[in-house]
Amino acid sequence: MKKCINRMSLAFPAASENEAFARAAASSFITLADPYINELAELKTAVSEAVTNCVVHAYRGMSTGMIYMDIKLFSDRTVYIKIRDKGCGIADIGQAMQPLFTTAPEEERAGLGFAVMESFTDRLRVRSSCGSGTVLVMEKALQEKMLDDDQRDISDKSGRKLGACSPVR
């Protein structure tokens, strides 16, 4: 039976400068679970995509709005990330999740946000209703760390010699 061993909640305005804040906060919290560096980089990217979606789309045409981020760490090394807004909602989730679909081509949005989130996590769920907002939940099971892997991590941080684990700078 998996148990929640740590959790955090944040609320911040949907402003583009908070994209960097959100992924730094997520990264800092998830680090407590001792992830591999590539796992952390993937989760950081997934959070960045989710928060950017809220900033770009959720409150379009409205003066401002808040983004709510909850992260839970479970005893089985699962990371649970919930990102929620109270914005306009997504009319057609299936269409929004199609790779390359975007409603903001003039801003050079590639339409790959959901594809990146799907590929960098194990499970992605989206629930949305027009006019009241969107809830996005991502889950990823972190790999068990092997004893000799501590050594790998050290060389990763100092020398960045490993091809498999990309460094976070």
């Binding site: 960045s48 995509e49 801003e107 590639a110 976070v168």
Partner: peptide, 14 residues
């Protein structure tokens, strides 16, 4: 580059 999300793909495509 220290970090990139799909915004970087939009940048390259443009």
């Amino acid at each position: 580059v220290s970090f990139m999300d799909s915004s970087g793909i939009g940048l390259v495509m443009g």
